[in-house]
Amino acid sequence: MAKILVQIGTAAFFAAGLAGCDVDKTQEGSVNLPKYNVEKTQEGSARMPEYDVKTPDVAVNSKEKKVEVPTVKKEERTVRVPDVDVTPADKK
């Protein structure tokens, strides 16, 4: 059951990542696993599938637009702030 959930989660992850891409499979994949008894009876081989992936073009630009922005006025006041004096241990 856990193995199936991991496979479904992995497939969903890759599907979300490729949602904006155009993918064309260019070659089939195959796996020929070696057979083992006490000694190896067959050589193994593997060929992974090939894909052509075309990603979408994304352009990020800026433009000027008038918007209302709140302004902040400042005034001078006298307030109490902390004042910390540190004497290093070797100076005591």
Rank of each mutant, 00 (worst) to 15 (best):
C21R: 14
C21V: 10
D22V: 11
D22S: 11
V23N: 08
T26D: 02
Q27T: 08
Q27Y: 04
E28N: 13
G29S: 00
S30A: 15
V31Q: 00
L33M: 14
P34T: 01
P34D: 14
P34S: 00
K35M: 00
K35E: 09
K35W: 10
V38K: 00
V38G: 01
E39G: 03
K40P: 07
T41V: 14
T41R: 00
Q42T: 15
Q42V: 13
Q42R: 13
E43N: 00
S45W: 03
S45K: 01
S45E: 08
R47L: 09
M48K: 03
M48R: 15
M48P: 06
P49K: 03
E50N: 12
D52I: 13
V53D: 02
V53R: 01
K54Y: 01
K54G: 06
K54C: 03
K54E: 01
P56W: 02
D57E: 02
D57M: 06
V58L: 05
V58I: 04
V58P: 03
A59G: 10
A59D: 15
A59S: 14
V60A: 07
V60M: 09
S62P: 00
S62A: 11
K63Y: 07
K66G: 08
V67S: 13
E68S: 09
E68K: 14
E68M: 10
V69Q: 12
V69Y: 02
P70L: 04
P70M: 04
T71H: 14
E75L: 09
E75M: 12
R77S: 05
V79D: 07
V79W: 04
